[in-house]
Design a protein around this nucleic acid. Structure first.
Lengths: 313, 313
DNA sequence: CGTACCATG
DNA sequence: CATGTTACG
């Protein structure tokens, strides 16, 4: 029986108490230390994307155990909420090539691309967007010899859809941007895309349709227009939602709201994805949702393995 | 080992876990259930004042165990932080005559007088004050046949003494007010007076002098002017700081900041007091600081017993 | 440090 | 519900 009513969680940075004390079941609050995944398929690089809902918070809840176990070649983090480039040697030694996009609002948004391989170029802007400051911290493009990786933390449409118009502006310019890149090199778009593409990508499609941010007509149509551009858009490449193509009927989600016990009830959304230029699809060897990694964040990571030459040339 | 990193303290409203589990030592976090005090002296009423630093919070940490053990006839609460009159039957059944002064700022300040005896009149204003809204929630005057009880939660002078001028305005009008009342009936001024009257009323007098709110020249002089009005103030009655008169050299405090482990280090302030019209002093039978009641708040209660007829006529 | 709030998701 | 502000003491 504790004698304290303090609100501070007493979780060690290195060894979360409940991760050590785990009985083998996921705690849903802190990641266990003993995670393991199959080794990567020969000849591939492994990419992972994870919305971590504050790096500071996730770090206290087992963030590093996932990273160690997954050991991705490229790790995209969204909603980092960092205000400056972190100096954590755990990250910098593992990923020599780090790019942190940081919002102008304090502890808000934030995207990172952490890579073992050196990119040819890095960019954190969205060309043509009328309000660059609103884009800050939401997009990073890294160029490799065989592809562009575009990492995004896409705007949330907001309570009462009050920022849906702003999101539509993002979608308009982002669509043009990714289509433009695709004309130069194949593109891997990954991150928190903040849209459930179709009814099977969220638990309560009917009740949320056109009401809840992430599943409105505007957002889903914008997404479909990237996958399958309208006939009017001549010469524009198609894209593929990799996990969905590999798992046509599965209902696995990447996000469970902390509210209403959504995780326990299975009320989730698939918002975190890999969307790749159609001509890359044949090179994808694996794509999975890491459902067991719930606890350090309200999102779980998604991982994809693709032939090495796409990244390393 | 807990599996949760939730910040919500899991303390039952009725039986705080650590209060039940106590080993006999004060927990400094939650009050034990088994508190007891000597019965009141025959022929007296018992008055208690307690800054509870949010009634909602204190209620989760054993507030009622103190009230039950002390069983005061009049209980003054300061810094209640309530936004509306509480409907708690524990309070209303014990104290049929409740007055709640509530601030205009949400969950800020707040004073209450809870009484077993019916007052002849009740007032929550400070006459003549130029900014009545800043006074809201800081003062209650209840009239009994033999006295006025004035309960106050006096303004804090603020970090960097930024609200000292405002406090001086309060002190100017409050002094005139209490002196005026004293001409009609003797006065019991009680509450969080938010001043350490002299060097022995705080742990680090030297380092705090004229820097820290509560121990500046302006505040201490204003307080002394109430105890002993200057010769120029003809016909104005004197007042007595009861606890200090009864304990001329004791260093007991009523407030220990939550910061810097002040309670453990004994770094406290005596800010909560009974100050009575000089002609009432002979009727005071007891006045004590309840040092053992640390935990539900960063202040402890102060209690005084006075001949019943002062209140009940 | 602890109790509140508000914004965001 | 959880992560961050901010104000206040």
């Amino acid at each position: 029986a504790t004698q304290s009513t303090s609100k501070k969680a007493k979780v060690s940075k290195d060894l979360p108490e409940s991760a050590v004390a785990t009985n083998g079941q996921p705690t849903n609050k802190v990641l266990p230390v003993n995670i393991s995944f199959p080794p990567r398929i020969a000849g591939t690089v492994r990419l992972s994307t994870w919305n971590i809902c504050s790096l500071a918070s996730a770090s206290k809840k087992g963030f590093k155990f996932y990273v160690e176990a997954e050991d991705p070649d490229v790790l995209v983090l969204t909603e980092t909420k960092v205000n400056e480039v972190p100096v954590d040697p755990f990250l910098t030694s593992r990923f020599p090539h780090c790019t942190w996009a940081i919002s102008s609002k304090k502890t808000y948004s934030g995207t990172a691309v952490l890579s073992k391989h050196k990119p040819l170029s890095v960019d954190t802007k969205l060309p043509g967007h009328p309000d660059p400051s609103s884009v800050k911290g939401r997009i990073i493009t890294v160029e490799f010899s065989g592809c562009y990786i575009v990492a995004t933390y896409v705007t949330n449409a907001g309570q009462g859809l009050k920022t849906l118009k702003e999101k539509n502006v993002w979608n308009e310019h982002f669509t043009a941007y990714i289509q433009d890149l695709d004309k130069k090199k194949p593109v891997i778009w990954m991150g928190d895309l903040n849209v459930a593409p179709t009814a099977i990508d969220l638990a309560n499609a009917k009740s949320n349709w056109n009401k809840t941010p992430g599943y409105t007509k505007d957002e889903t149509e914008a997404f479909q227009n990237i996958l399958n551009p309208p006939a009017s858009a001549a010469g524009v490449g198609k894209f593929v939602d990799v996990w969905r193509q590999n798992h046509p009927e599965d209902k696995h989600y990447t996000y469970f709201s902390y509210r209403f016990n959504c995780r326990t009830k299975g009320l989730g959304w698939r918002l975190d994805m890999f969307v790749v230029s159609e001509r890359l699809v044949e090179k994808v060897k694996m794509c999975e949702i890491r459902s067991e990694i719930y606890g350090a964040s309200d999102h779980v990571p998604v991982v994809m393995e693709i032939e090495s030459d796409v990244v390393t040339g």
